[in-house]
Design a protein around this nucleic acid. Sequence first.
DNA 1: TTCAAAAGTTCAAGAATGTCGAACTATTAA
DNA 2: TTAATAGTTCGACATTCTTGAACTTTTGAA
Lengths: 103, 103
Amino acid sequence: MPRFTHPRLEDVPLDLALHALADPNRLAMVARLAATERLSCSDAAPCETIPKSTLSNHLKLLRAAGLIETTQVGREMINTLRRAEFDQRFPGLLDAVLANRPA
Amino acid sequence: MPRFTHPRLEDVPLDLALHALADPNRLAMVARLAATERLSCSDAAPCETIPKSTLSNHLKLLRAAGLIETTQVGREMINTLRRAEFDQRFPGLLDAVLANRPA
DNA sequence: TTCAAAAGTTCAAGAATGTCGAACTATTAA
DNA sequence: TTAATAGTTCGACATTCTTGAACTTTTGAA
């Protein structure tokens, strides 16, 4: 069973956070999580066509950037946005990015 | 003589802008331009050790992201931040990024 | 129980990007 | 005219990204 590691937010460099957000698919997932609270990996997916392995990799990057937390529930991996922690680490950043996201 | 092309800001996607900022060297250059108004390429460089070709490539990316404008003056290429235009296109984004930049 | 399907992860290979030395161009100063 | 300066461009190597295939764990059914 995969046991995920989540970084402390103070260990996340700005570059890594920006890089994680600088991808349309990942940003779409973050936006979805910002609106939906808890989502399985496949429910967080930005579209149907994205391969599972790619999706898994994107989520791994978002974890490494301190943006999401993943816990196993049954056979699903449940993802949530680490909103409060991220906002404390990078004040105003996620708000600005989400506000400028294309519809 | 190189004649640079600068995109209209409305043609710059958010992803490209974030990607341009998601690099420590490029972000350092943007921060420097935010503080200094006009800088030649070598003056905009984040450090002495960065190769010229790499520097040139970084600046090309910043141009493509609508972040800087480059004009030739003599044998120098003078760079300026397209601050007002960028801020209008992505309100609050650059402020948030710069505010969270490590010292 | 046992078996198959579901939900993801991991691995590896090919594709796409990034880095940087070397050669090149244009401009200025001597 | 020549040499130096300031960058760009090119090409090769390195790193990163994408994705199919195989694997692991959990659950639901027979």
